[in-house]
Amino acid sequence: MARTGTTFDVGIVDDHPVVIDGVRAWLAEEPSVRVGHTGDTTADLRSHTVDVLIVDLNLNGRLVLSDIGELAAEGRRLVVFSQSTDESLVMDVLDMGVAGFVTKSEGQAHLLHAVRAAAADRPYVPPTTAGVLVSDRNPVAPQLSPQERTSLLWWFQSMSKASVARRMGVSVHTVDMYIKRARVKYAQVGRAAPTKTDMLARAIEDGLVTPAELADSAEWTPSA
């Protein structure tokens, strides 16, 4: 599938034509993206092979969480594009193995980043997701380093990685790395999904984390 450089196919599933048109217009600014499928239901997706699927959580008045779970379990790369900012919904969707959750109020840049990242099995964390992750109190939550927590929190607060970098006294790249590492740690927990495995493999490949670090962060369980 499309990993680096080459063009990739994107599907858009939303029950509002205006959203499909809008997202299509946004994606048009990204030369490597080709819109391969649009529709208002998750039912007829079997025949369409797209690299990344942008999908709304609420289709024709129905919350399609279980459909999204099935698609993720099949190994589809999904970016949820939803009006909702509900924290438990964001956590559920990420737990299923969805690559990214972009709220409709976050807009074009974040959606493009998320789609590009998903196509390459790389993590992208929009500010809303950062807020949800840093406030996560679930006992099975992975252990984040203080820098990772601070990066997530400040990214959520300011929505500017440059500002976060200046405030932390590090480079934007470093801030980005902290945020990505936090996200990768979350790919380790909860239910297994092919997309999560791909993201972990890619993170190791990119040198974002080492297999040993992943093992360490999974050792939060107080077995002793």
Binding site: G131, V134, S135, R137, L153, F156, Q157, S158
Partner: peptide
């Protein structure tokens, strides 16, 4: 302005940008 409130295990962080 963006007002955020984040509650973590140890603290409450209120922010305005």
């Amino acid at each position: 302005a963006r007002v955020t409130v984040v509650v973590t295990a140890g603290e409450i962080a209120v922010s305005v940008v």
